[in-house]
Design a protein around this nucleic acid. Structure first.
Lengths: 196, 196
DNA sequence: GTCTATACACCGATAGAC
DNA sequence: GTCTATCGGTGTATAGAC
C-alpha cells in the first residue's frame, strides 16, 4: 500500500474530486482516475485497497478542508457573514450531491458525512450565539435552527443556480442580507463609514 | 416501441424508482430493472429507446405526481401546513439526490427538473400570498423567499434524518411550528376547539 | 514504485426467432 | 410482445515482471 499523503495519493484524490464534480460517481472508476493523473490503472490499487476506500478518503480530505475554512470564518470579524460566504461558496453543490448519494451505500462514508455535518453545525451554532449576545437585534430564533437554515438554504441556492433555476433567489438573498445586517451590521461601530 | 402507460411501462418505472431509491443510479441498469419486474432485459429496450429515456420518464411521472399532491394541498383548508407536510414527506430524499446528480449530465432531464422546481415554487408562492393576506401576523418576509426556505429546509431535514443526523432538528421544527401558527393558526375561527 | 497482462463479471444495445 | 443469443466495451481486482 502506498503512503497516504504522498504526491500520487493527493493527485488521485484530486482526480477523484474532479471526476465526481464534472461527471458524477458513475464515472468514478480506477481507470478514469489513473488517466486523469497520467499513471496506469494498477497504481490506484497500490494506493487504495478498493475504490470505496478512495472515495472515503476523498471525502475526508475535503471535509477537513471545509471545516478549517469554517473555523477560520468563525474567528474573523463579521463571522456570520464570513460563514455564510463559506456555505454558499462551499465545494460545488454537485460534489455534495454525489457524496450524499454515496453516503447511504458506502459503509464508512456515512459515518464521515455525519461527523462533518455535526461538526460544521456546532461551529455555526457557537458563532451565531456569540453574535446574538453582542447584538441589539431582538429575535427569538434559536441558534440551532438558524444553523440548519443557513446550511439548507445555501446548499439549495447553490444547487439550483448550477441547474439554471433563479425564481425566488433574489428575494431569498435580499432576506438574508437584511437579516445579517440586523444581527451583524457591517459598520456597527463606524456610523459614518462610506457605503460599499 | 412499447406503449407509454401500459402495465409493463409503469412496472419498469416502478422498478427504476425502487432501484434508484435503494441502490442509486450506479445500479440502475436494464438488467436490474428487468429482474425487478420479472421480465427479460431485452424487453426494457422495447419500451424505452435508451436507459436515459427510462430515467427521464421516471422523473417525469414522479414530478407530475408530486405537483398534483402540492396543488391538492394548496387547495385544502390549512394550505400552508398541508404544503409543508407534502414537502417533508415528499419522495425519499435519496431519490431526489439521485435525480439531482443525474440532472447535470443527462440531457433532457435537467430541463424536466427545472420545470418541476419552478412549478412547485409557483404553487407555494401563491399559497403563501393568499395565507399572508388573510392573516394578521405581520412579517416582512417575501412569499418567494419563504417558498425557497420551505423547500430547502424540508429537503435538508429529510436528507439528514435519513442519514442519522438530529442536531438542530428539534429547534428547527419548533421554529416552523411557531411560524405556521402565526401565519395559519390551526383553530383560527374556533377559539374553543379541543387541542390535538 | 510502477508497469504489462489478465481473470471474470457486467454493461448498453442490437439481430432476429417465435 | 416477448424471447434467446450475442457484440464490443468497460468495470474491479489481482498476478507477477522489472
Amino acid at each position: 500500500m502506498g503512503p497516504a499523503g504522498s504526491d500520487n495519493w493527493h493527485a488521485m484524490l484530486d482526480g477523484a474530486e474532479t471526476i465526481l464534480r464534472e461527471e458524477g460517481h458513475a464515472a468514478l472508476t480506477s481507470r478514469r482516475v489513473a488517466d486523469q493523473i497520467g499513471v496506469k490503472q494498477r497504481l490506484v490499487y497500490y494506493y487504495f485497497r478498493t475504490m470505496d476506500d478512495l472515495i472515503i478518503e476523498t471525502f475526508r480530505r475535503l471535509s477537513e478542508r471545509e471545516l478549517a475554512r469554517l473555523a477560520n470564518a468563525a474567528g474573523s470579524q463579521l463571522p456570520l457573514r464570513q460563514i455564510w460566504e463559506v456555505c454558499v461558496n462551499t465545494a460545488d453543490a454537485r460534489l455534495i450531491s454525489e457524496f450524499m448519494a454515496l453516503a447511504t451505500r458506502i459503509d464508512g462514508l456515512g459515518k464521515e458525512v455525519i461527523h462533518f455535518i455535526e461538526s460544521s453545525r456546532a461551529i455555526q451554532i457557537e458563532a451565531i450565539r456569540k453574535a446574538s449576545s453582542g447584538s441589539k437585534a431582538d429575535h427569538d430564533l434559536p441558534a440551532e435552527a438558524l444553523a440548519v437554515l443557513a446550511t439548507s438554504v445555501a446548499l439549495a441556492l447553490t444547487r439550483e443556480r448550477q441547474l439554471g433555476v433563479r425564481s425566488g433567489h433574489p428575494e431569498m438573498h435580499g432576506l438574508i442580507d437584511r437579516f445579517l445586517e440586523g444581527l451583524e451590521p457591517r459598520y456597527a461601530a463606524i456610523p459614518d463609514a462610506p457605503k460599499g
